[in-house]
């Protein structure tokens, strides 16, 4: 049996509640606004927070792109895209420049976002202090008192143990000089993209029932010590084996034939765009 679903899956009451939480989140950058996370047709922890934001803001004229770890075609991205498309009928795209809403998990696209775009990030653990304090009530007090010694201590312990901060992803940031925020598990490489971003960034944690935001042109500073400055993953001297790109976030792969280590753009639509451009240039070079 197939029933017609309401536009954007949600009933209007749910949308209103999430919309109010989003507006509050924008007004208090980096602060986690609690909301009544809805039961979704995908499991909690698989992007329900991001999905609920996307469904609440999307309209008929929007153009949607969904990525998962930089890829447009991985399972999580495809199922979310299909759900949104079948309940709203919006256009789906892969090129970052063509989208008005970009929902993402674990990456911010390589192509700089514009003022007319909204980036929605899926967040598994919105609380940057959770590792040092298990009780939600206490972490709320710590946030209210601007007491982030726990987050600093975490980085300090990493330096003691490994000689450097060892956050693989989700390196905590100070937003608007007030709240410490988990930027979602994006690599450190993407943290600077949040600082003074042209696009609005909305973050949703469905399982943890929190929505927070970074408005455009807002200061976002990665936590770091004076003698151990913040650094991003370095890909110096490496290039994408498909499109030849440098200075982008790359995946490390093993060539199955030669057993050599090779690198490839993590952002698939960026890589595809470059390949298409290269091919066009080649064709022109050959036949003109």
């Amino acid at each position: 049996m197939k029933t017609e679903s309401h536009f954007a899956f949600f009933d209007e009451g749910s949308k209103k509640e999430i919309r109010r939480a989003i507006l509050k989140a924008v007004a208090i950058p980096g602060y986690q606004v609690p909301f009544a996370s809805r039961e979704m047709p995908i499991a909690r922890g698989w992007g329900t927070g991001g999905l609920q934001i996307t469904l609440s803001i999307i309209g008929k004229t929007d153009v949607l792109k969904v990525i998962d770890q930089g890829a447009d075609e991985s399972v999580n991205a495809v199922s979310i895209k299909k759900l949104v498309n079948s309940t709203t009928g919006v256009k789906l795209v892969e090129r970052t420049q063509d989208a008005s809403i970009i929902q993402s998990r674990h990456r911010i696209p390589e192509v700089p976002l514009t003022e007319d775009q909204i980036l929605v990030l899926q967040v598994p653990q919105p609380e940057p202090l959770r590792k040092v304090e298990a009780r939600e009530y206490i972490t709320k007090i710590l946030h209210s008192e601007d007491d982030y010694s726990g987050a600093w201590l975490m980085l300090f312990e990493q330096i003691m143990k490994y000689g450097k901060t060892s956050t693989g992803a989700d390196h905590p940031v100070y937003v608007n000089n007030r709240y410490v925020m988990a930027p979602s598990p994006i690599p450190r490489f993407d943290n600077p993209k949040m600082h003074q971003s042209d696009a609005l960034i909305l973050l949703g944690a469905g399982r943890e029932k929190k929505i927070y935001a970074v408005p455009p042109y807002t200061d976002v500073k990665s936590l770091a010590f004076d003698d151990y400055p913040f650094s991003v993953e370095s890909f110096a001297g490496k290039h994408c084996h498909l499109c030849g790109a440098t200075e982008v976030f790359m995946d490390e792969l093993i060539d199955t034939e030669t057993s050599e280590t090779i690198y490839q753009c993590n952002d698939t639509s960026y890589c595809m765009d470059r390949l298409n451009e290269n091919e066009e240039a080649e064709v022109k070079g050959n036949y003109v």
Partner: peptide
């Protein structure tokens, strides 16, 4: 239209709230 018109109003509010 309670669905599409109010969605547009919200998006305008969201745009203005994020661009004071």
């Amino acid at each position: 239209d309670q669905v599409h018109d109010l969605q547009l109003v919200f998006r305008k509010l969201l745009h203005s709230m994020s661009h004071p």
